[in-house]
């Protein structure tokens, strides 16, 4: 078999090329089989196990990273929940404190009002009692003084007073005592 080359080139036979480079189908086959054997052995005992290990490692790293990412997300959620709970507790505590303060204020005011009313009523009662007692004392004193004045006048005059005299003395004494009493009171 020959290859016809353009004018100016010598025609070159394929057999000559094969001969020059030592191409021999036996050697070609042996070299090919040798290469394929090496590839097969390397694939079986080196490439495949190594790639499998690399894939397994990659998968493990990916799952580890995913786990870490999930955990990070979960931690963020937990932190957020914790913060929300703290904020809620703070708000609730503030509300409780505010309510307690309000209630305490209301209670205090109620107590104050009640106390004031009680004091007022006690004061009024005491005033009434004192007034009643004074009136009683005044009345008794007045009665005693009336008869004392009459007796004293009778002794001074050494005569028995008639009933109309007695009444006149008593009236005069009462008027005098009233004047004295009011004068003292106004002082």
């Amino acid at each position: 078999m020959t290859i016809e080359l353009p004018v100016g080139f010598a025609s070159v036979g394929i057999d000559a090329i094969f001969g020059k480079f030592g191409i021999d189908w036996h050697l070609l086959l042996i070299q090919g089989v040798n290469f394929l054997c090496v590839v097969f052995v390397l694939y079986r005992f080196a490439f495949r196990p190594v790639l499998k290990t690399m894939d397994a490692r990659r998968a493990e790293i990916e799952s580890g990273l995913k786990y870490a990412s999930d955990m990070k997300l979960e931690l963020e959620n937990l932190n957020s929940q914790r913060q929300n709970m703290i904020d809620g507790a703070r708000t609730e505590a503030a509300e409780i404190i505010f309510t307690a303060q309000q209630q305490a204020k209301i209670y205090g005011e109620q107590q104050k009002a009640e106390m004031a009313a009680t004091v007022e009523s006690m004061f009024a009662k005491a005033k009434d009692e004192i007034s009643a007692e004074r009136d009683t004392v005044l009345k008794n004193t007045k009665n005693e003084l009336k008869y004392l004045v009459v007796d004293l006048a009778a002794k001074v005059l050494e005569k028995t007073l008639s009933q109309s005299d007695k009444d006149n003395f008593i009236q005069a004494a009462s008027a005098g005592m009233r004047d004295v009493f009011y004068a003292k009171k106004n002082q």
Partner: peptide, 8 residues
Amino acid sequence: DLNATLAM
């Protein structure tokens, strides 16, 4: 050797 390279 061209046999080897040609085979590959």
